[in-house]
Amino acid sequence: MDQKSDTYYIAKVLEGDSGSFAPLVERYKHLAFSLSMKIIGRREDAEECAQDAFIKAYRSLENFKGSAAFKTWFFRIVYTTAISKVRGKKTNEVSLEEYKLSDSEMLDTENAVGQLSSEERSVQLHKAMERLDPDEKVILNLYYFEDLSVEEIASIVGLSASNVKIKLFRSRKKLYGQLYNLLKCEDALLW
């Protein structure tokens, strides 16, 4: 297994060895694709977007100063590429009325989600995530899935850390709201 650092490969690419870009692609392709999917939603488009992001990163690799981690720098490229692809396009998501959950309802929802089987929980969470705005999906994904810090997310999405915190709080609440709606619907069907 190759354990060399990102900076090692970046230096090699900058020396003219374009083949050294492959380990970086291999290392970050899942993250790039996953982030693109969260924003774009369509598999083919998301894959194209992730590829475009890699090419953009390759072209501007000499501008990478190394002050931030390559991962954060590259995520910013993926994010802007994906956002520019969806900008102006109408999303085909179903617009649902936002339901403001009370604290007790949030707790109930969390308990209900906790009681579901792992497989069912994944399905419901996936459905609920799909109903969020791309920005919200990205922030939740980066924070909970990729384990990035608020500061790192802020530099990727181009917001201040305090704004990210607010968005994170709202997105989480909205996610629970969607889960509440989904579980309530399923209950109603069962009745």
């Binding site: 374009s18 870009f21 996953s34 969390e110 994944s122 939740l140 899935f145 996610l175």
Partner: peptide, 27 residues
């Protein structure tokens, strides 16, 4: 808890020849 729930969602994977496609474009 939400972090644990989220981690259970299977990660979406790119196509198998993703790296090759990118490297073709890089070349």
């Amino acid at each position: 808890k939400l972090k644990d729930f989220m981690k259970e969602i299977p990660r979406e994977e790119p196509s198998l020849d993703f790296t090759r496609k990118v490297m073709d474009r890089v070349n």
